[in-house]
Design a protein around this nucleic acid. Structure first.
Lengths: 350, 350
DNA sequence: TTCTGGCACTCAATCCTACCGAGTGCCAGA
DNA sequence: TCTGGCACTCGGTAGGATTGAGTGCCAGAA
């Protein structure tokens, strides 16, 4: 009666000892593999656990009491709960991706050619192929290459189209609507000034604009402001989903398949979900944690895409709650790192 | 023995009379609705058929002998064969889309705003919403608006970027690699000439190019030829798939869902399938008709996108063999017509 | 000749029952 | 604290009976 009462209260913070953790890990690993409830016998067979089935059973009871596991029915084995997966992801299953797969991803990302969009598309497809889960890449629509040339095209009715040729041979365009009239000469002059101002800069560079006195100068000011605000927006953000067909592999009912496809179609939802998670500093969301109902049976793995210190997007994977977290997290990390590196280099080359 | 032998030989061309056709139509309609085998009793109940079940049964036997129907097992009703569906599509089920739906589609297509790609995307999604099948739109990457402005940007190493601003505020770019050196002045001069030549023309317009004498002229010739060949290619063709999530609704096993998703992902496959069908003048492919195995359990409905007499793409729908052909065909037709009209108008406005 | 009502027949689907065995909880002894 | 033993639970499977939707055939009516 003098002991400091390590009474096994459910939900107590330190209700987990080494063996319990091992058992939990074994249950989860096995369940991810087989999708079936896992019994004491199976665990007894797994590496690293020497206790007898009977002992394991008592551990299982404890784990169930603490909410890490549950029993579908009396005479069945145990299945992980969301809490169980969470503990696993946070403390245990930091399994890595197999080196050849890492290699495969890295070298692929290094070698992809073509336009930015096509790069995203190819990489998301590759990531999906490697992990066998549908993959999502949210990336900047254009990287911060420098302006190589600038033109203004007057479309009348006070609409001016700005065409920027970037140093990576990409072309950006945007429209400004003016609240004053301009002559052809004004546009020509403005274009001249705009070139002088912008060529060699990044659309993210900010500098003092000359005071406005003439019409061309007003036009230039409008144009530059439009360009800067466009660049500041996360507009132009691109979303790519690779491996849609893997949805049908990952889930075992048509209904959840439908729902997941639906979410992937509504790219806004996915993007905001990713942003939510990243903002909370989370890299994994399990089941209903994110509070978004249609994805209640899913797990989401996400890695931030950080380019030159700036948050520029995300790399994500969707799977069932019994997904291979270790692999998935590692894969998303590899892709986000490599891709960020690549984009950063390209941006500098500009 | 003297009769002209109207012996009911299977496969005979005229083995179909009015009542048989009605019965066949009834079977197919019912089966499309319920997905179950259809019996004589059910048909007896359908509108337009007054014969008794017994009579209908003998018709069913005949239809089965001719290969239009089949029985999953002795004591079950009948299910249409591919041949049955084919006859239905060709001679019977020219069911139309309900006027409100037609209206909905037309007005939507008329009102969609934004860039061409976004237009395709929105329309394919809408088409999918209306029909409840995944929809595909293959369209030209850019419509033949006229050139409004042209620029050349020298990227060194004999690479020149051509930037064309089109009259619809779209911007097209392409690169030419030269086999001779050019000076800055050459590029400036060439740009001047290029503008003179191209502004106001369509990238499909062809005209005599001036004889080549100077370096700028050579450059211009290269540029124009590049533009023309790019426009001539079906390159720049855009593919959009709307309503991917409807795949899971349309098929009843995860396996076919997977396969269909897979095909939709590989857009090349879909496009070439569409082209095949259109080339053969077909608008519907049922089951294995197209010979593409993974889609053996699917039906494909496709309508050509004809802009100003030119074949410019396609509008397609995918569904199970028991899809609502009438509706689907009508919907695809409406969309292809309206979209073609819209694009044609836009092209002319240029 | 064509249609129809009647009838015997077939066979997938459904339900019931019994049984099996994976897995459990509990307990007594090491 | 761990372990072997044991009785117990209960979902899954297999066999067997039952049902009923649907058939093919036939004889008589139109």
């Amino acid at each position: 009666m003098t002991r400091p009462a390590p009474r096994t209260t459910p939900e107590s913070a330190d209700d987990m000892d080494v063996r319990k953790a091992a058992v939990l890990a074994a249950v989860i690993t096995a369940h991810i593999d087989t999708a079936h409830p896992v019994g004491s016998q199976t665990i007894h067979g797994s590496a690293g656990i020497s206790a007898s089935p009977a002992t394991i059973r008592s551990e299982l009871v404890a784990l169930e009491r603490s909410g890490y596991l549950q029993q579908p029915h009396t005479s069945a084995g145990r299945v992980p709960t969301e809490k169980g997966y969470r503990y696993f992801v946070d403390h245990l299953g930091r399994g890595k991706l197999s080196p050849p797969k890492v290699q495969q991803l890295s070298s692929f990302i290094g070698s992809v050619q073509g336009e930015l969009k096509s790069v995203y598309e190819q990489i998301s497809t590759k990531l999906s192929d490697v992990t066998r889960y549908p993959a999502v890449i949210v990336g900047p629509g254009h990287i911060n290459t420098t302006v190589r040339d600038a033109h203004l095209v007057d479309f009348g009715q006070r609409r001016i189209l700005i065409v920027l040729t970037m140093s990576d041979m990409d072309v950006q365009k945007l429209t400004v609507s003016l609240d004053f009239d301009v002559s052809t000469q004004d546009v020509t002059d403005a274009a001249q000034q705009l070139k002088a101002l912008l060529i060699g800069t990044t659309v993210r560079d900010r500098f003092e604009l000359p005071a406005v006195s003439t019409t061309p100068a007003r036009l230039v000011r409008h144009a530059v402001e439009a360009i800067w605000s466009e660049a500041g927006e996360t507009e132009g953000e691109q979303v790519f989903v690779g491996g849609t067909s893997k949805v049908a592999d990952s889930f075992d009912t048509l209904e959840t398949t439908r729902q997941v496809l639906d979410v992937l179609e509504k790219q806004l939802v996915i993007v905001s979900l990713f942003k939510d998670l990243l903002q909370r500093g989370a890299s994994v969301s399990i089941g209903s944690e994110h509070g978004y109902l249609p994805l209640a049976e899913c797990a989401v793995v996400v890695a931030p895409l950080t380019i030159d210190g700036q948050n520029a997007g995300a790399v994500g994977l969707l799977g069932p709650t019994r997904m291979k977290y270790g692999e998935a997290i590692a894969a998303a990390d590899v892709v986000s790192e490599q891709l960020a590196g690549r984009l950063s280099v390209e941006a500098q080359r500009g």
